[in-house]
Amino acid sequence: MEITTSQANGRVPITILHLKGDLMDEEPLHSTAAQAIANGSQYILLDMNDVPYISSAGLRAIQFVFQSLQEGNHEDNEAMKRGIIAGSYKSPHLKLLNPSKNAAKALGVAGYDMFLEVHHNMGTAVNSF
């Protein structure tokens, strides 16, 4: 897995992590995202256009990013609780771009797709934050 990082500015500054290769391990996504968050990133878009497969370890890495961003944004917790109760909560901080068919299957089986917005166009994804 290779990860390159870029920045985009929508209504908020967004860190885009471009993933390339199978997401079969927690690393390097875990450490790359942790570094971005430590450097101040509050909004992350995972570009999954070149990710053929996601394993359970890859899912753990995505969950780590989700929870790390959530922990750093306590003001969202009340909105999150209301959304969870209503069954409509999706993270405003972590979104996905273009997961492949197989990657989408893994996200669906794990139930991650209920909590993460999926976009299929970079512009739409950036403007959604």
Partner: peptide, 17 residues
């Protein structure tokens, strides 16, 4: 798998998959 991601423990997805 319906438990919110924010509240889930890590792991347990491998055998589920």
């Amino acid at each position: 798998t319906k438990l919110p991601l924010a509240l889930r423990p890590f792991g347990g997805m491998g055998i589920h998959m």
